[in-house]
Design a protein around this nucleic acid. Structure first.
Lengths: 214, 214, 214, 214
DNA sequence: AATGAATGAGAGTTCATTCAT
DNA sequence: GATGAATGAACTCTCATTCAT
């Protein structure tokens, strides 16, 4: 598949011993469930089936363990959009804005489903880890934002979407899409017709962003 | 103003000693800054200028202290919408949907500005505190949602907004508004023309939710 | 009745306020149940229905409270034997040794039943409270023992009991009687015919202490 | 000697680190001296020359430490009587009841001397530790009592001791013997001729339990 | 006399981390 | 590389006691 599971990225990478993988697995599990600060290293060791000392042989501190889990996420979180899809868009690979949105949503949803625990940890810890915030601004704030803005401008020029400050457009799109993901994966309502919801959301975005006719 | 500051609700309420108020103030400050689990009671005591034992004289456990801070938020968070504005809307106090949205956004923004730290703690801890999740479902999920749905249906009947599953309509509105708040208060971009942003958001919502003409 | 209830001695004595009585009552209850060291003053206060400070208004320390409860016991524990019964015996009020034992056992059993909790506290704390041990030696070791020895010698002279070191005789009697009380009140066996047990014990003591015929 | 020192049983057993032994030694010492509730873990740590955390690495709680010290006592306390001596008695290894008593007293006295501190802790804590009481009833109340009763019946059949409810006979013997031990080891009188005291006690028991001639 | 808020020392326990094996 | 015993600082919480009211 085109989208790789981040779990692999993190703990199936080469050079990791069996124990290291177990540690990462256990840490992700527990950090996601109880939070970083409320998780003890002895708990991770027990869950991973290794001695307490073994964790510190591979990761100097508990915080380094967190960072090794969460940091690569930053790059992957928005990676594909940035790198691959930008050129697809500019090369007219997508007929229109709606098709681009559809592809992007699908692509990110795969990623999200595969890495939900790690993403949860990332979101929880961003407010408290200076280092993560810096990385976030560096990667999302600069690289992604810049390229996303070019895509929006591309469709504005094609008169498919309204001429409005691209930052605002991006915000409106992201808010709407995150709201969809949050509802689906966090609230997870009992009645949920996914296809319908996607169509409604796309309709809403399309109408909301349609250029105003003179 | 009509909107009261929740800080008052929490720690200026009658029956609290001077020390208790100091404890609450210090706890809110520190929980917001470092997170609940990473905050020690000795730190709170020091910041509040009281003995550590004093905290436990008033709050049996550290968790009870958290709950006493965060729980009333639940009720206030969406209180006004539910109680006051529902009848304003149904009594035609608002001419149209846009005016209703404008009022709601303004009202909640005041509240948010006054209680930003406590809200931050609430959001951070909801994933880890079963009790909070239950209260959230009880208060937001049931009371608020039900009434918000009636408002949406009211405007749908007046043909001001599109006929679509009200739950989806609510989600789209809330996502958009939360995105606005998050950008303004969390990301807080250097360039930000608030009036323009509100107008753009309202325009977007209006267009996105306009009934489709036959 | 001739035998007074020690509870009265302790907390119905004149000059005690209602609150003081409640404190003593609660303290006896709790010390007996959980032990002195494992009982907190706040627990006593709660059970007595008084403020924590009130305890310390009447008793400078927690230990003083213990002493005020347990110390008078020392005097009462063996009081009657010493004072009254000694002269009864020497004045031939009791026809024989068996009748004396019978009277003593009955008398002490009444006392024990009325003051079981306080006695339990006394027994528990004697190993740890120097002061109690001193009092014990002073009152039991010297006064009681001396007089008890005279009684034994009295019956030895009357050739009712064996001529043997009186200390040993006393020890054998006390061991046997305490064994009876302990079985009855601590082990409390389901099947227990009290009259029979008393007769068996008295028969055993009589036979065991009968002078050896030449 | 045949009788092993329980201290060995407790803290010389294999698999214990040097530190663990020190901890047990220090705990026994201090619990015996000040009582369980009045002993702090920091005190034990200091006396044992280990860090406080080390105690909790080996014993989850302070109470578990108590139990690990005191629980094996239950089994050893009356062990030999039950297992070995029962058959010695029934196999006529002892000529008469007096010889049996003599052997039993000697055997238990060795044990008592070797484990006096631990036994003291056991006696002190039995009233407060439900778990200990249950074990006591299970081991002493059921196993020992049953076998002791058979020994008594054995000598009753041989017409060496009086025909009387065996439970009462056992109680009279145990009371007398415990009284001897208590006087010797707890009161420890200055003048004490041990051989004489044993002979007097055995004489007393023998006479007290002699069958009544018709 | 009685209160109960306040204290700070110290309780039992947990923790991330180290290090000899 | 892996272990797990050991650490001691820090944690949450309890305690006996004080004192202003």
């Amino acid at each position: 598949m085109s989208e790789q599971n981040l779990d692999e990225v993190i703990y199936n990478q080469e050079g990791l011993t069996e124990k290291q993988k177990k540690i990462l697995e256990a840490a992700i599990e527990t950090f996601a469930e109880k939070g970083f600060a409320a998780t003890s290293t002895s708990e991770i060791a027990k869950k991973a089936g290794v001695a307490e000392g073994t964790i510190f042989r591979h990761y100097k501190t508990k915080k380094e363990l967190l960072m090794k889990i969460v940091s690569p996420m930053m790059f992957k979180l928005i990676g594909p959009i940035v790198i691959k899809d930008l050129y697809k868009v500019l090369d007219q690979e997508f007929d229109d804005f709606e098709e681009f949105l559809r592809a992007m949503i699908d692509n990110r949803e795969q990623f999200l489903k595969n890495n939900i625990k790690t993403i949860r940890i990332l979101i929880q810890e961003i407010p408290f880890q200076e280092e993560l915030r810096e990385q976030f601004i560096e990667h999302i704030g600069k690289k992604v934002y810049g390229r996303f803005r070019r895509i929006v401008q591309h469709y504005q020029e094609k008169e498919e979407i309204i001429v409005m400050n691209p930052d605002t457009v991006i915000r409106l799109i992201i808010s709407t899409v995150l709201g969809y993901f949050a509802t689906k994966y966090v609230i997870s309502p009992r009645e949920w017709n996914d296809e319908e919801e996607i169509e409604r959301m796309l309709g809403f975005l399309k109408r909301g962003l349609t250029p105003i006719k003179k």
